[in-house]
Design a protein around this nucleic acid. Sequence first.
DNA 1: GCCAACGTTGGC
DNA 2: GCCAACGTTGGC
Length: 135
Amino acid sequence: MTNRWLLKSEPDVYSYDDLVKDGETLWTGVRNNTAALNMKKMQVGDEGFFYHSNIGKEVVAICRISKLAAPDPTDETGRWVAVTIEPVRKLPRPVTLAEMKAEPKLEGFELIRQSRLSVVPVRDAEWAQILAMAG
DNA sequence: GCCAACGTTGGC
DNA sequence: GCCAACGTTGGC
């Protein structure tokens, strides 16, 4: 079962361009239980939106899960996990948070409902809607 | 087990 | 810089 996701990153810390440069990256540092549960549900090949938080506040690209959740090497307690992601493509243009909030079809979107969650599931209809908004 | 206090995230 | 939302911690 393929699912879709949205992953947040502050672009001054790690942007989509950094991911392109690196080829792939271990998505470390998630320290929230709901977000960790979402990562454990990810399958290799699942796609996700890459969202720039704080600066930009917009979906900029699509990425793909390339490795399943495994223990996060930056976590000394051994309780947290990280997946590996790779870049897929940039959107024709970014879709901003303000646009998504203004779109009635995205009313139930988890990104908007629970704004602090850093790894968010995206429903098929929401995925299609955001792609359509990206042009 | 409840809840107040505090810390963090992220939008504005 | 402020604040809302949410999670965590610790006293009782």
